[in-house]
Nucleic acid binder design. Structure first.
Length: 210
DNA sequence: CTCCCGATAT
DNA sequence: ATATCAGGAG
């Protein structure tokens, strides 16, 4: 089984366990952008707890600029790096209003110009927000599982993404990321992977070796 | 490579 | 008390 066949089989099996959907709650691209900025180094579940209240108070980019920065900080206080993230969200709101007429950009190039947005965040917005497959979301789970699957040895996230883009069929890019993220959180954990109960343990090159 | 930083599990 | 979680900027 080569890498491409391996990926197809992995997707087929993981689909029986999880929905290939992002775990973040949102109702439009702007909310998705805010949620994704908040999700850096933070679990999606915690982000959802915060955004449930946040999105009732703040609807549009303008709403984030109406209140003092300190107020926004308090509203996201239970999130990691809340000061940096509050500042980035406000700066994004400002730029999106001034440069993009209030609409979140739908291209990689423009998204990467936003503060607090690198390829991971941009790929989430493009795939989950706009249904575009410009790249593959590579977070810590996709990074770790790709290496355990021997799909790439790249340490550099951007280069790892390039490797994956050559192996995974384009129409599956989004599914690949979200299925691996779910499996990484539940079974193929960073520290103590549950290989004994993993649906992939008969084909995984790293099964049972630690 | 350092800084940003809180919640939850153990 | 300490480990774990899990991106981006400078």
């Amino acid at each position: 089984m080569d890498k491409k066949e391996f990926v197809i089989e992995v997707l087929k099996r993981l689909r029986t366990l999880y929905e290939p959907k992002i775990a973040l709650n949102f109702s439009n691209p702007w909310e998705l952008l805010v949620a994704t900025i908040l999700s850096a180094q933070t679990t999606d579940e915690r982000v959802n707890m915060v955004t449930e209240k946040l999105f009732k108070k703040y609807k549009t980019p303008e709403d984030y600029l109406k209140v003092p920065l300190e107020e926004l900080e308090q509203d996201i206080k239970s999130i990691n790096y809340y000061r940096t993230k509050a500042k980035n969200i406000r700066a994004c709101a400002q730029i999106i209003l001034e440069k993009y007429g209030g609409k979140v950009p739908d291209t990689m190039e423009e998204l990467l110009k936003l503060p607090g947005v690198a390829r991971k965040t941009a790929n989430v917005v493009l795939s989950a927000g706009y249904g575009k497959n410009e790249g593959i979301v590579v977070d810590t789970h996709v990074d770790r599982l790709s290496k355990r699957f021997n799909l790439s040895k790249e340490k550099n996230r951007d280069k790892l993404e390039q490797d994956l883009m050559k192996i995974v069929p384009r129409e599956e890019w989004a599914n690949f990321s979200y299925l691996l993220i779910h499996h990484g959180r539940n079974v193929c954990k960073a520290k103590n992977p549950k290989c004994d109960e993993c649906i992939l343990n008969d084909i995984c090159p790293s099964a049972f070796i630690k």
